[in-house]
């Protein structure tokens, strides 16, 4: 309990299910992790592993119906935000938590100038008016390195490039000075050189504001580049959590290890990539055991019977596998 002071977010045993006519889809099934103040925490996994639903759950924006958070706790600065009312949650969103989405093309409303959209966000949370509102908006645009911000302020979204739009969204997200920023694949739609610009910007924003960052991505390279700690998700569960160094130097879950071997690398010569045969199980199946067992090369009888508990194999490095 001693390090509670530095703890920003604590997700405990989160379960988000989707109730469809084809059965219950357990998109997030018992996910736990912690994020410290000012830390960048990565969640990495393949499509459909539940990483985006985890993000939406933290925002309490899971489409209902068909989705519903059926269990767990999301403790933000000591308060379980699953217990508060919708009205209170609306105040938490934007003020304490903010989110950046993948597609810069659809995240901005095309019929308002970026200045108006930025002011709208500031107005809701800070109650500024008139000139000071405008000054704050331009200041924010400058902070996200938009050149000649006073002119750009009057631009429409379609007049900006993808990279600039994403930076404007970044400005909107931090306008309310949130404690936690969730970035869901924010650079996937951007080109490599623009991606680097944006990632660097995020880092600078974080240094300036001390915001905690949850970075959701499918790209291990971004995890290596951006995060201090990360979790690997597979089929609705976290299979391994640890410092980024732990994950890269000592990937311990067979899934993490296999993924690392199947990554093409620019820096070194790889004769042949290892590939993981098969594909992830459908999430509406009722699987008792480890979800990776069917594709795992070291799976034993026990693995198919029950799900392994999380084991701490070294300081802060947790693995859910029967091997440990």
């Amino acid at each position: 309990m001693g390090d509670n002071m530095s703890e920003l977010l604590n997700v405990k045993n989160l379960k988000t299910y989707f109730f469809t006519k084809y059965g219950t889809v357990k998109a997030v099934d018992g996910v736990s992790f912690k994020v410290d103040k000012g830390e960048t925490f990565g969640i990495v996994g393949e499509s459909g592993c539940g990483k985006s639903i985890t993000a939406l759950s933290i925002m309490r924006l899971v489409p209902d119906p068909p989705g519903r958070i059926v269990g767990g706790e999301i403790v933000l600065e000591g308060e379980d935000i699953l217990k508060i009312s919708d009205n209170e949650m609306r105040k938490v969103r934007g003020k304490k938590i903010s989110m950046i989405l993948q597609d810069p093309m659809t995240s901005l409303n095309p019929v308002f100038t970026i200045g108006i959209q930025l002011e709208e966000a500031i107005k809701i949370h800070q109650g500024l008016k008139g000139r000071s509102l405008r000054e704050r908006a331009i200041e924010l645009l400058e902070m996200v390195q938009i050149s000649s911000a006073a002119v750009r302020y009057k631009n429409w979204p379609h007049q900006l490039s993808g990279g600039m739009r994403q930076r404007v969204i970044g400005a909107i997200s931090v306008s309310s000075e949130p404690r936690l920023l969730i970035a869901d694949e924010p650079t996937t739609a951007l080109d490599a050189t623009i991606q680097v610009q944006f990632l660097r910007l995020l880092r600078e924003l974080q240094e300036k504001t001390g915001v905690g960052l949850v970075f959701i991505t499918h790209d291990f390279g971004i995890i290596a580049r951006m995060c201090q700690r990360a979790a690997v998700m597979y089929a609705g569960r976290i299979v391994e959590t640890g410092s980024v160094r732990d994950l890269f130097d000592n990937p311990s879950h067979p899934y993490t290890a296999a993924l690392m071997r199947s990554l093409p690398k620019l820096e070194e010569k790889v004769e042949r990539l290892a590939s993981i045969e098969g594909q992830p199980p459908p999430l509406n199946d009722d699987i008792q055991g480890c979800r990776f067992a069917e594709r795992c090369t070291v799976a034993e009888h026990q693995c198919r019977l029950s799900y392994p508990d999380e084991t701490e194999i070294s300081d802060g490095h947790f693995v859910s596998c029967w091997k440990f």
Binding site: T20, K21, S47, G48, P281, P282, L283, N284, D285
Partner: peptide
Amino acid sequence: MRQVGGGG
């Protein structure tokens, strides 16, 4: 409508 429930 038919794509729903494909899992993943």
